[in-house]
Nucleic acid binder design. Structure first.
Lengths: 339, 339
DNA sequence: CTGAAAGCGCTAACAA
DNA sequence: TTGTTAGCGCTTTCAG
C-alpha cells in the first residue's frame, strides 16, 4: 500500500495525499477527511524515510561508542538520544569496540548511509597516529566528538577538561594532607584521555610541590574484568609494603576494585574515582568521583548539532570544567588519617 | 555526486557502477579498475540506503527500550546490536521511558520508517490492558519481545522463566533454613514481570510449606533513586523490629539498597538480587543474583529474526530458564545464621 | 485548493 | 560483460 494507491482510492492526486499526511494547511476539510478516512480504512502507514531520502534530510544521526554495556557510554547515549528524539531525529547506534579498524569501518559505513551527522562518544575515537578517516567522514557530514579533540574542518569537539579536573583533585587531596597518592589507570583503551588524565595527575603533584614517585603510578591491563584486576593490583601493592595514603583512579570501576582490596585488608584511605557513574553510588562506602559532565556535554552537543543543521555557525571546540562529587570515600574536610 | 555522474565520468552505465560498488563478479577487471579509480578520485561515497529503500530491505531494525542508562537494558541492547551488526543490520535505538503513550508513539514511529523488524526489550512493553498498538505494528513488520509475552500473530517472544527462577531461589533459601524471606519489589514500572516475580515468590513459599506473611512483601516506589528508597525501607523495617532472616529483591539495585541498610545496622542475612548486573559485582560483599539469561536470549532473538527475514518459520514463543549466580551474600552451602 | 510531473540514488530485470 | 530502463514511495515545484 503506497501513496499512489491511496490517491487512486480517494480520486485525488498523490500530492494531495502527501499534503494530508504532512498536515499541510492548504487542503480543504472535506478532502482531508476523505483522505484520512481511506488511509484509516486501508491501514495505510506512510513510509517515513522515503521522502527524506535523497534530499539529505533523513533525520537520522549516527552515534558511535565503543561499548554500550559500559555505564559511561550508556549514560552518554541515553542523554544524546533523548535530546535527538525531542527534535524528531532518530539515532542509529553503532557499538564499535576499541579496535582501530572496527571504529574506522563503522564510521565510513555510517557516512555511506548519509545520516545527517555522526557523534563519536569517547576519546577512543581520536586515534594517536592517523585520523584521516575522520577527516574523510567530515568531508561528507558533520562530525561531533565527545570528550576527544582533533582539529579538522567540519569536526566539532565538546569536552570536559579532565586534565584540570584531575589536577584539582590532586590538589584537594594534598590540601587534606595526602602526600602519597596512588594513581591507577587503564590507559590502553583510551590513549588520549588516559594521557590527559595522567598529565593532570602530574600537574597536580607539581603544583603542590610533591615529588612524582613512579611506583605510585600503576597501570591496570585486563581483557575483561577491570575491577578485579584493580583489586588484585592493590592487594599486591599492600602485600609489597608500598606506602600510599590515598588512591585516585581514572575510572570508577578501578576505584571500586581498589576499595575492595583495601576493605579486605581493613585499610582505609580516601579513594576517588572518575566518571561519577552509578557504580559510585552502589559501592559501600559510596565513592567520591570526578564528574566529567556528560549531563552538560551531551545536551550541548545536540543543541549545537541542531544549530549547525539549521545553517547556523557553531564553535569547533567547547570545553567545560569537571567537578568533584564528594561521597563517603573522601570529604574535603577529611583530615589525614581519616578515610 | 551520485552514481550517474560517476557513470558519466567513466563512460559506462550506472548499472556497471552499481555492479562495481556491490562487488559483482560480472565486471571486467579493466572496467572495475577504471570505475574504482574515478570513484576514488571524486571522493564518491555511495548512498547505502537508496537501494534498499522501497524494496523493504533497509537492513535496519528498531530496538525499543525504556531507558538505555539502565544497566539491564544497556546489556541487552549491547548484545542485540552486536549480533545485528554481525549480520549487516543497523540498529535504530529508541528509548521510550515507561509512559504508555510514549511507548506507543515510538513503536508506530518505527513502523512508519519501514524498519525490517522491531525488538521490544523488557516487560514494560506488554501493557496490562490494551496491546492493540502492538497488534497494529505486527501487521506491518515482525515484532520481537524480550522478556515479555503476548499472543499476537507476527509477534515473537523470547523470555526467561522468571517466575520459576524466583520460586527456585525461595526454595534454595528455605533449604538453607530461611523461613522469613523479605521480598522487595518495584512493580509499578514492570507490571507484568513484577506480577510474575511476585507469583514466583509465592510459589516458592507454598512449595516449601511456608506461610505467606504480608509484612514481608514490600513495595518500593521511587521517582528517582531506587537504591536509596530500598535502603530507607529496610532501615525502617529494622527499626520497626520486623523479623526476617533473608532478603530477595526483584532488582539488583533494590538488593544493594537493602544491603547498605543491613550493613549500616551491622546486620547480616543472605541477600539476593535480580538481573545479575555489573552492580552485583561492584557492591561489597558481592551480591548473589538471579541471572535472567540476556546473554542467551538476545543472540537467540537475533538468530530468529534473521531466520524469519530469510523466510523461514520460527516459534512464536521461546522460554529459557534462569539461574542463580551465587556470590558472597549467599552461598547454597550457607547454614542458618551465617550470611 | 488541487494536480501533473520531475526527480531523490540506487537496483535489477531484461536485452544486447 | 555491459547497457537500458522501469521503478522504490514520497516531496515539491509549477500550473491551473
Amino acid at each position: 500500500m503506497n501513496i499512489r494507491q491511496i490517491a487512486l482510492l480517494c480520486g485525488v492526486s498523490t500530492a494531495t495525499v502527501s499534503r494530508v499526511i504532512n498536515n499541510s494547511p492548504s487542503v480543504s476539510a472535506v478532502t482531508r477527511e476523505k483522505v484520512l478516512g481511506v488511509m484509516e480504512r486501508e491501514g495505510y502507514v506512510p513510509n517515513a524515510f522515503a521522502g527524506g531520502f535523497g534530499r539529505n534530510a533523513l533525520k537520522i544521526v549516527g552515534i558511535l561508542c565503543a561499548d554500550i554495556a559500559n555505564l559511561y557510554y550508556a549514560g552518554a547515549v541515553s542523554l544524546l538520544e533523548r535530546e535527538l528524539r525531542a527534535r524528531g531525529i532518530d539515532t542509529l547506534l553503532c557499538c564499535t569496540g576499541y579496535g582501530q579498524e572496527d571504529k574506522k569501518e563503522a564510521l565510513t559505513a555510517l557516512v555511506r548511509k548519509r545520516v545527517d551527522a555522526v557523534i563519536l562518544v569517547g576519546s577512543a575515537y581520536r586515534e594517536e597516529r592517523d585520523n584521516t578517516h575522520i577527516r574523510e567522514a567530515a568531508r561528507q557530514i558533520p562530525v561531533f566528538m565527545l570528550n576527544a579533540h582533533v582539529q579538522i574542518p567540519n569536526v566539532f569537539c565538546i569536552l570536559c577538561d579532565e586534565r584540570e579536573a584531575i589536577s584539582a583533585t590532586v590538589r584537594r587531596l594534598a590540601a587534606a594532607g595526602r602526600r602519597a597518592i596512588l594513581y591507577i589507570h587503564d590507559m590502553d583503551k583510551w590513549a588520549w584521555a588516559g594521557t590527559q588524565k595522567l598529565a593532570g595527575y602530574r600537574d597536580g603533584l607539581e603544583e603542590c610541590g610533591l615529588e612524582e614517585d613512579s611506583r605510585l603510578i600503576r597501570f591496570v591491563n585486563s581483557a575483561g574484568n577491570d575491577m578485579q584486576a584493580a583489586q588484585k593490583l592493590v592487594e599486591e601493592l599492600l602485600r609489597s609494603g608500598l606506602e600510599f595514603d590515598s588512591i585516585l583512579a581514572s575510572e570508577d570501576v578501578l576505584a571500586i576494585g581498589a576499595q575492595k582490596a583495601m576493605f579486605s585488608k581493613r585499610r582505609s584511605v580516601p579513594i576517588i574515582g572518575f566518571n561519577n557513574s552509578q557504580l559510585a553510588l552502589c559501592c559501600t562506602p559510596s565513592l567520591t568521583s570526578i564528574d566529567n559532565m556528560l549531563s552538560v556535554i551531551c545536551p550541548m552537543a545536540v543543541e549545537m548539532l541542531e544549530k549547525l543543521l539549521g545553517g547556523d555557525g557553531i564553535p569547533s571546540k567547547v570545553v567545560v570544567s569537571g567537578a568533584l562529587v564528594e561521597r563517603e570515600t573522601f570529604r574535603a574536610c577529611a583530615e589525614p588519617g581519616e578515610g
